[in-house]
Design a protein around this nucleic acid. Structure first.
Length: 442
RNA sequence: GGAGAGGUGGCCGAGUUUGGCUUAAGGCGUACGCCUGCUAAGCGUAUGAGAUUCACGUCUCCGAGGGUUCAAAUCCCUCCCUCUCCGCCA
């Protein structure tokens, strides 16, 4: 038996936060169980089923008592209207029964509430269900490479890793004394290159018709729960205890939560957003692995894209976003490959995800620079993001997607390593050279 | 940080003084229909969400939580958020 902490500080103005459809939990228990198993997540379905039954029983009882109490109150009300003296006793008796009903009600409601709270807490721990075409496997070795593009550069000298090429422009002594290890401080042309890249990516996304958004870089507990960082990744985030706020680990959090607890109109969809943000990750437990240079750091810069679409359109949207990211990498002239993540590598909230890795010639390594995911109704359920279908009928949860376009430090690493000359200077890709009028750095 | 004003359905907005036909008025929007030889306008009808139930139905929801009461959008307490002004400050 696992223990699932009580999340008493989470509220939703549209009701309790729920995750998978309750009907799904009830009726397709095996599917839910299998999904969790394939993702390597615990699955508290048995306890949930018990609570569900208990809740429904208690709910029936409270409703009957409430109905009776309403009835009694209405009788009192109508008697009082033309009171003639004889009725005082009658009113007294009705009041007594009503009061007694209230007492019984309170007792049952207490149990009901306990069951509901526990249920909602547990529901936060069910991972999203992978799409049927996601490879089943418990780690990244089961990922399937679905695309490779571009040529790895060849050199007639021994190419260096980016940290050697950057030299003192990557001033870890300074960032270390300002903050601590694995934070970046860039100087000179390295800082310049980062700024140019952000600005180019922003323009590229803007020209693709997305709406540009500038977001807060700190988010509250409820937002973090909606997008799925809490509860699983709570301790991978930087937390501001005094205000119970978190530094965002990805721009996905603010961008997706823009529409929390909203009802969108059919004509508003699809919503296509992008925005810049720094991303903060504690990376607890990852020391010693890939930590040199820009490969793994606690704060990195990213331009993030978020889409909200009708459920029937999310699969196409995922492919479109994937193509868009590929286009960016091609324009930057970076060799890349795309992997369809296996169940065990798929994040808690995602139902399907493509990872983009670029080739970094100095380290001779593939570096992940983007991750494009479909969350289907997982985040919109948690966050309460619905829309009214034009055809009428019940409100529907939108499907949410997001993708990096793109994440910076590793992109920088690859550009620097792939563009290096024997003398240690850096040739910029054409698209950036045209934009800035600068062809070579260093 | 201080003072004030607020938070009601997809949106706007009445209701809070005086608790009870509030089953939340009215408007906008939306859908359908009528009328108009196009459009606009006009007229009519419908239209909150959620839970539960085979169904009829029942119950819940007026920022969140608690309290008073036979009965709470309405009274009391705590908290959250938004706006305006002041203070501080990049």
């Amino acid at each position: 038996m696992y223990s699932y902490p009580i999340s008493d500080r989470i509220h939703s103005s549209t009701g309790r936060i729920i995750m998978l459809d309750r009907a799904l939990l009830r009726n397709e228990t095996d599917r839910v169980r299998l999904a969790a198993e394939n993702k390597g997540e615990p699955c508290p379905i048995d306890e949930w089923l018990e609570l569900d039954e208990r809740r429904r029983r208690l709910l029936g009882e409270t409703e009957e008592l409430r109905r009776r109490r309403n009835e009694l109150s209405n009788e009192v009300s109508s008697l009082k209207k033309d009171m003639d003296g004889d009725q005082a006793k009658l009113i007294y008796n009705l009041s007594r029964e009503s009061k007694e009903t209230g007492r019984r009600l309170a007792a049952i409601e207490k149990d009901l509430k306990a069951a509901e709270t526990r249920m909602s807490d547990i529901e936060l721990y069910f991972p999203n269900i992978p799409d049927p075409d996601v490879p089943v496997g418990n780690d990244e070795s089961f990922n399937r490479i679905v695309k490779s593009a571009g040529e790895k550069p060849s050199f007639d000298f021994n190419p260096l890793p980016h940290w050697e090429l950057l030299g003192e422009l990557l001033d870890s002594e300074a960032s270390g004394s300002i903050t601590g290890s694995n934070f970046i401080l860039l100087r000179g042309w390295a800082a310049w290159l980062q700024r140019i890249l952000i600005s180019w990516m922003m323009d590229f996304n803007s020209n693709a018709g997305m709406e540009e958004v500038w977001v807060p870089f700190i988010a509250n507990r409820k937002s973090m729960t909606s997008t799925g960082q809490i509860p699983k990744l709570e301790y991978d985030m930087y937390h501001i205890e005094k205000d119970d706020l978190f530094l965002i680990p990805t721009g996905e959090v603010p961008l997706t939560n823009i529409y929390s607890d909203s009802i969108l109109q059919d004509k508003d969809l699809p919503i296509r957003l992008f925005g810049y943000s720094p991303c903060f990750r504690r990376e607890a437990g990852s020391y010693g692995k890939d930590t040199r240079g820009l490969n793994r750091v606690h704060q990195f810069e990213k331009v993030e894209m978020v889409r909200m679409v009708k459920p029937e359109n999310s699969e196409v949207a995922l492919e479109e976003m994937t193509a868009h990211v590929g286009e960016m990498l091609e324009l930057l002239n970076l060799p890349y490959r795309v992997s369809l993540l296996a169940t065990g590598d798929l994040s808690f909230a995602a139902s399907k995800c493509y990872d983009f890795e670029v080739w970094s010639a100095g380290q001779e390594k593939w570096l992940e620079v983007s991750s494009v995911s479909n969350f289907r109704g997982f985040q919109s359920r948690r966050g309460g993001i619905r829309y009214r279908p034009a055809a009428g009928g019940k409100l529907q949860y939108v499907h949410t997607l997001n993708g990096s376009g793109l994440a910076l430090p590793r992109l920088m690493a690859a550009l620097i390593e792939n563009g290096q000359t024997e003398s240690g200077r850096i040739v910029l890709p054409e698209i950036l050279a045209e934009r800035t009028g600068i062809e070579i750095l260093g």
